[in-house]
């Protein structure tokens, strides 16, 4: 497996995505977002947000959406 940091995180995120994909559509995006929020440390989040900003290559669609939501929430929180 690659040791390029963002590639590794993309892989991990997609792996999480595959589990929640099987949990039904309405849970998919929310499930991924919640899981990542619960278990990833800030620097991992920062790296994946940056990757998302740069187009999010390799992220599965639902995972991409989930990360986008997390990122928006984080930005909103910072502003508040």
């Amino acid at each position: 497996m690659s040791h390029n940091p963002s590639e590794r995180l993309v892989y991990m995120a997609n792996q999480i995505g595959k589990f929640f994909q099987s949990q039904g559509q309405e849970k998919e995006v929310a499930g991924v977002a919640e899981h990542i929020k619960k278990f990833w440390d800030p620097r991992m989040l920062k790296t994946i947000y940056a990757h998302h900003d740069a187009g999010g290559a390799g992220l599965d669609p639902a995972v991409k959406e989930a990360i986008g939501k997390l990122k928006d929430a984080a930005v909103a929180k910072e502003k508040a």
């Binding site: 940091p5 590794r8 278990f39 620097r43």
Partner: peptide, 12 residues
């Protein structure tokens, strides 16, 4: 905020 897990420590 949650911290790093062992594999993430190694990566970092």
């Amino acid at each position: 905020e949650p911290g790093l897990r062992i594999p993430n420590m190694f990566d970092s």
